[in-house]
Amino acid sequence: MLELHFFGRLGDLSGEIDTSIDYGDFLSTPSAIVDWIALEHPALAKELLQPQVLVAVNRVVVDWNKAVVDGDEVAFLPPVTGG
């Protein structure tokens, strides 16, 4: 199982996505997860590919080709605007 999180404006676009998905080899990196999302939700995938968007695995920002394993939590982070 993978847990997906979409924050900020990405959350508004991911309304229909099931955020708890069965793990499979085709979901082995954040990039692969975006490719999978693009099949059903191209508008969301396009936003995820924006250069300012960061990805975190288990709450640590990682490279888009970082290995994702069963049980991981993957979060897509648009530019932050706190303070």
């Binding site: 924050f7 900020g8 404006r9 508004d12 300012q52 982070l77 648009p78 530019p79 932050v80 605007t81 706190g82 303070g83």
Partner: peptide, 29 residues
């Protein structure tokens, strides 16, 4: 404060009288 605004995982959505909108990061920050 400078690092909090640009690095901490917080996001603001503004609710205006006519629409709601996620805010973008400011160049000055």
């Amino acid at each position: 404060m400078d690092y909090l605004k640009t690095r901490a995982t917080l996001w603001k959505k503004a609710e205006w009288s006519d629409e709601a909108q996620w805010l973008g990061i400011k160049q000055s920050d």
